[in-house]
Amino acid sequence: MTGQLRERCRRLLQDGAVQVVIGYGVSTSDGMPHPIFVRRPDDVDKLIWNEQCMANLTTYLTRDAVKALGKPAIVVKGCDARALVVLEQECQIDRSAMHVIGMACAGVGSPRAPKCASCDVHVPAAADEVIGEAPAQTGPADPPYAELEEFLQKSPAERFAYWREEAARCIRCYACREVCPTCYCPRCIVDKNRPACLDTSATVKANFAWHVTRAFHQAGRCTGCGECTRVCPVGINMRLLNQSLARAADEHFGYRAGTNRETPPIIGAYGLEDKESFIR
């Protein structure tokens, strides 16, 4: 697949169809695939594709320095491609002004990333072209919210204690925010200081508020790529919070972010028939 990918990108760059390929290349620091930006046909041999291609590259599409490079071709996995749909729905990208190369994927990471167990997008939807074949036997996918449902077996007090521990470790490096394709605000609410809405101190209180805010600003928008949790230096399992909102969107509104660009986003729209049982 790497060979095919390189040839395809060589042609795209040679023909001037795109000015830059946002793909994966081997980093000099750890030998792992990390994002690279290829601008010359001669450099396409730096591109690779393998099971360690973790990063969701769509996060670069909204960045000024990357936009300045010209029309991009972007390499995406099925899970990454869902973010493209959200970015398009929210008018952050012009889908026609980019070339999307989807990679058929049987799962990434060793051990496998948790998201892969319930993957149902082995072949990226809405790509301009797909390289590779759908994996033959991947076995039935796990139910999508299995990890969350197991967590919810704990009592509320245990859950609170769990998050208290997690929040206590947070150092507020904001890697979770920066790596997230749908966290694209030029100025995050936590960076607003006239007046300040959220404390920037890494206290348990403020970290709690930060994680509630980060998660809820992703409500109905998070596509479950899991990058926030993967990159967290202190191992905070933000995936659980994202899953709880994804499940709520699914159960209450039959909505799964990034699966259908025609459906209006649930936050920002409303329904006269929305059902709940908790309002007096």
Binding site: T59, I171, R172, A175, E178, T200, V231, P233
Partner: peptide, 29 residues
């Protein structure tokens, strides 16, 4: 520098886990 920084996401994971980085901010809360 422009090329090197293209892939930098602008988070603080490097500085906050660095033994020597020491920048701080004074805030009233």
């Amino acid at each position: 520098w422009a090329d090197l920084a293209l892939r930098c996401l602008g988070c603080g994971a490097c500085a906050y886990t660095c033994p020597t980085c020491h920048c701080f901010d004074i805030v009233d809360e």
